[in-house]
C-alpha cells in the first residue's frame, strides 16, 4: 500500500547497512539535533577541505528507518562534493519534503535522495527525513563561522 511504497528498497538498504556511520576526526563543526516529537536524534560532524570541498560527513544517531537512512544517503551524496552543490541538494530535498507529495522531484539534483519522495505524503514522517539534512546545513553554517 502507500506506506510500503514509502519504504523504498534503497531506504531499507541504507537503514540495514548505513554508509559512513560513526563519528570521525578531524572535523570543523559538530552539531546535535533531535526531533522532540519522536526522540530521533543525530550527532553530525563535517570536515571541509580546499576549494569548498566536503571531505567528510560523519554521524551517529538513533531513530526510525527514515531518519537513519536519510543520514546514510546524505553521507554518500555530500562526501567528496562541494558545499555549493550539497546546499543545492539540501534546498531541493527540503522543497520535496515540504511539498505534501505534490512536488515533482528534480532527480538530477537529488540523486539517490529521490527515493524519499514518498515520505512527503506522510506529514508525521517528514521531520524524520529532514533531521540529518537540517543538521548538515547547521554544521556547514557553523564551520564557516
Amino acid at each position: 500500500m502507500i506506506a510500503e511504497s514509502m519504504y523504498q528498497e534503497l531506504i531499507l538498504e541504507h537503514y540495514k547497512h548505513p554508509q559512513g556511520r560513526g563519528l570521525r576526526d578531524p572535523f570543523d563543526a559538530e552539531v546535535h539535533h533531535v526531533n522532540p516529537t519522536c526522540g530521533d536524534e543525530i550527532t553530525m560532524r563535517v570536515r571541509l577541505g580546499d576549494g569548498d570541498k566536503v571531505e567528510d560527513v560523519s554521524y551517529d544517531g538513533q531513530g526510525c528507518s527514515i531518519s537513519q537512512a536519510a543520514a546514510s544517503v546524505l553521507h554518500e551524496l555530500a562526501t567528496g562534493s562541494t558545499v555549493g552543490e550539497t546546499l543545492a541538494v539540501v534546498d531541493e530535498f527540503t522543497r520535496l519534503m515540504q511539498g505534501r507529495g505534490q512536488v515533482e522531484p528534480d532527480e538530477d539534483v537529488l540523486g539517490d535522495a529521490v527515493a524519499f519522495a514518498g515520505v512527503a505524503k506522510f506529514p508525521a514522517r517528514v521531520k524524520c527525513a529532514l533531521l540529518a539534512w537540517m543538521a548538515y546545513k547547521d554544521a556547514l553554517a557553523r564551520s564557516a563561522s
Binding site: M1, A3, E4, M6, C38, G39, S65, R125, C128
Partner: peptide, 23 residues
C-alpha cells in the same frame, strides 16, 4: 532493531491497526 515509528506506520497502512508509537 525496528523503530516504533516504522512499526506504527506499517500497522496502520497495511492492516488498519491504530496503535500509538513514541514516548
Amino acid at each position: 532493531g525496528i523503530h516504533p515509528h516504522d512499526v506504527g506506520q506499517i500497522l496502520d497502512d497495511e492492516f488498519g491497526v491504530a496503535v500509538r508509537v513514541g514516548h
